[in-house]
Design a protein around this nucleic acid. Structure first.
Lengths: 326, 326
DNA sequence: GTACAAAGTGTAATCGATTTCATATAAAAG
DNA sequence: CTTTTATATGAAATCGATTACACTTTGTAC
């Protein structure tokens, strides 16, 4: 079933049928005739042919480092909630934290596979920036700030800063920090800086050295908690860069009979479900992951429909989560 | 940059260039000439044009009820791990548990958008089955068994049965069950039946009535745990259909000062990270979610390359997870 | 009554690849 | 020396839509 057959059945030209689907000039009689034939045959125009002709794929590409992750899952859900209504489809690529793959997918998407790209980013290499420059489709970056590009990110620094202040307010004075690799500007660097500045402002400069680097898994949090305790004696509070590693750290403390919150008060970041099911629940901070997905896709849709709009960076808010514990 | 320009630059016909990319007959000299031009220009054939001509989209559609979920995330990760290597891309659709959307996406994908579909299924309505019949692209169902269709699923019944036996072995005699809606054959019905048959075989028929239905969230598990305790006094063990609801249930018990495992022993299903970070960790059962994704996409790839193979149903195994707790 | 804009229509070119077909050459087989 | 067979090649048709263009008709303004 192609447009020519429909045209013949309806007694019109194929141009008329095309106009029928694209609100072009068309008389009421022909419109009705075509409507009838289309209904009877269940005809739907070929997306491939449309794409070839119009250069619009009606797809957007989404590149994420991982999909089985609470925070990234939320971002993707946010993207889809908006995408659904706009008649676009989503091509998903997962890099498994391999920068080479990230660049590969980006390049594949760029070659007119999609109308736009959303990159949920972690680390930027020089090669990333080189590729960004040459991009022929619009891109919105989520989770990281990068000057000169559309991006939606979180206030990692102040969230981590406030979280640290909160523990200090609760009277904890021997804090430690479990962070992520520095190459990840948002989660690694900014969150650590928030911790560092908060302890320094409280005159506890030495605490800035009380830190270890973990990766984004429960088991890494478990391991690194051991290292942190070895490195720093008598800790009474630990702030982690993510809930996941914090939950691993809790596991370690539980197994080694260290009381939480009695001896050590634990905080994570991300407000994931995991933070609520540990005992006690983690103090944590809520980042609007779903909202960031929504915002990013809205931005992209705007760029797509109105052409390059004013370059925009959106920094989203956060709030503390400190549930009652009895 | 299109094939004709490349052909001109290389001094050959466009057919030759096409053959260069599709291992057709081509002389060494021309191959080299084309290779050079392609390298210099960075030319890549248009996927849209290829699709229009060959009717192969090189995309597969994946329909899931939810994406921010540990189990489904793993399935998707499994799919992608195989897909990556095969030069296919993945179109992702999320239904948010809306059967109407599920059918819409299926129908959209069917209209030659993709070469094949993987449906991560929960509930089948009559309309689903009607649509399945008319499908023009191959489909593999994940997570549910459905006779007459390619499907990959888990041994929900025996897993739940064994899990219940395990609690009985541990001396618990007043069990309760927190399940999911019956319309979900796998997670709702089969897992409950496993529980029911295990308690009945132990001569504890009355326990089969000790159940409540929850939805797939922590907060629902929390609420329903209250209802279950109201309904059944003196429980000493509870089996839940998923880890998520089990974690919510644990939260309730903790807040109401009911000792776990002292007073009540708690079990979930799914072996998610969440099951490991509660205190104590949940007894749970490992379903091979990632493996099910891999298996499904392998099946689909086989169908795509070899034509409709013998109809296959794959039932995957499981194992108990009962970590030490001191 | 003329001029000009707006509505309505079909023909044919176009997007960028693959593939059939016709044809040519060289090597191998008889 | 003929007949196959495998290799090599380009012209042109094809996939299924959109759209520029040329043209007709109708309505409106002066």
């Amino acid at each position: 079933m192609n447009i020519a057959e429909i045209a013949k059945l309806a007694g019109v030209s194929s141009a008329a049928v095309s106009r029928y689907f694209n609100q072009g000039y068309i008389s009421e009689e022909k419109r009705e005739a075509i409507r009838k034939v289309v209904e009877e045959t269940g005809y739907r125009p070929s997306l491939q042919a449309q794409t070839l002709r119009t250069k619009k794929t009606k797809m957007i590409g989404v590149i994420v480092p991982k999909i089985a992750s609470a925070s990234i899952g939320s971002v993707v859900e946010g993207i889809l909630s908006v995408l659904n209504k706009s008649g676009y489809q989503m091509l998903l690529a997962v890099t498994q934290n391999d920068p080479k793959k990230e660049l590969e997918y980006l390049s594949a998407f760029d070659e007119k596979q999609v109308d736009g790209v959303i990159l949920v980013a972690t680390v930027f290499t020089a090669e990333h920036k080189r590729m960004f420059k040459g991009l022929s489709v619009p891109m919105v970056i989520v989770g990281q700030q990068l000057s000169g590009y559309y991006c939606v990110y979180h206030d990692d620094y102040h969230a981590s800063y406030d979280l640290t202040k909160l523990l200090l307010q609760k009277g904890r004075r021997k804090l430690g920090y479990m962070g992520a690799i520095k190459q990840d500007k948002a989660v690694g660097e900014k969150r650590y800086q928030g911790y560092r500045d908060a302890v320094c402002e409280a005159g506890l400069d030495k605490l800035a050295e009380n830190y270890v680097i973990a990766s984004f898994t429960v088991s890494s949090g478990y391991e690194k908690m051991g290292e942190l305790l070895e490195k720093c004696k008598n800790l009474d509070g630990v702030i982690c860069a993510t809930d996941t590693m914090a939950a691993g750290a809790m596991q370690y403390l539980r197994e080694h009979n260290i009381q939480v919150p009695g001896q050590i008060l634990m905080a994570g970041q991300g407000d994931s479900e995991m933070a609520r099911v540990t005992a006690p629940p983690l103090i944590t901070v809520h980042y609007s992951y779903e909202k960031s997905g929504e915002t990013a896709i809205q931005m992209l849709m705007e760029i797509l429909s109105q052409g390059e709009t004013a370059l925009k960076e959106v920094k989203l808010g956060y709030y503390m989560v400190d549930s009652e514990w009895k």
